[in-house]
Amino acid sequence: MSSRMWRLALAAAVAAACHEGLQPTPTCPPGFVGICGLVTVLVPLPDSLKDTTEAVFIVAYKNFPTAPESLFNFLPLPPPPIPTSPSTYPYSLKVPNGQYQWVLAVWKRKGTLTTQSADSLLREVGFYKDGGDTTTHGTGIVTVNGPGTDSIDFVIDFGNMHRICTYFPPCPP
């Protein structure tokens, strides 16, 4: 190979590396398949819970869980945590195409999560619903069909936390 060709090869290599690479990516980037939106923490986490809090997660269910055993059928796995201070935060859930019946925020107490301990370790603290909806868990069905599922916004109210048994009554004392 002649020296000219080697120079050309080196120039091509330099040109190839000049662009691309990781770039600053907005919250819900172009081409992202999943659910994006804003979550607003209205009421701060009570001080009494701070020491026992492990995290607050946002999850999505394709089908509304109908029994404690189906509580773990959420996506994505693992779910992203969000801060607990009063503010508005962007979030994104990388989930496949499909319909999602429940997009919610879950507070988790420290401890090993099992179907038996779920009621004592988990609290629903907010979920996405259509405006004017008054049903127990909302009718906020989210459809993901390729990129662009954005503005799935909802609020978190740590002053109004619901036990899991609210959705699988009766609640033990």
Binding site: P24, P26, T27, P80, P81, P83, Y89, P90, Y91, S92
Partner: peptide
């Protein structure tokens, strides 16, 4: 990642 620090409006 998102919401795990001051993201400055970025996904990561």
């Amino acid at each position: 990642e998102l919401n795990k620090c001051d993201n400055r409006g970025l996904a990561f």
